[in-house]
């Protein structure tokens, strides 16, 4: 075991290489994940404040996790069914969704 950590006398070079790799890869992954969460949360609150959007997201199950909002917003079929039942002013909402599709 001591041999393993000793790395034939090159411990500092070998272990700092693997350490740097861990820091860079884990750091980028964490930053990407937290960035995604932050933006999805921002998108969710923004969609709530827009009146035209509120009705549509109210049709989706309430208490949405921030993470799943994007999926709800983009799963296509359910939303299109939603739009169809509401008719009228959803012409705009429909084309909006279409733009994202």
């Amino acid at each position: 075991m001591a041999d393993f950590f000793h790395m034939g006398g090159y411990a500092i070079y070998v272990w700092s290489s693997y350490g740097v790799a861990l820091v860079v890869l884990a750091g980028l992954l964490m930053a990407s994940l937290s960035g995604l969460r932050r933006k999805e949360r921002m998108l969710a609150t923004l969609e709530q404040t827009l009146p035209r959007r509120r009705r549509r997201s109210a049709a989706a199950p309430s208490g949405d996790e921030a993470g799943s909002t994007l999926h709800h917003g983009t799963t296509g079929k359910d939303k299109r069914a939603d739009d169809a039942t509401k008719g009228g002013d959803d012409a705009d909402g429909g084309s909006d969704g279409g733009g994202g599709e």
Binding site: L33, G35, L36, K39, M42, G73
Partner: peptide, 12 residues
Amino acid sequence: LRMRAELAERKI
């Protein structure tokens, strides 16, 4: 993950 974040950003 990053592309999803960027698409969300564009929507925002």
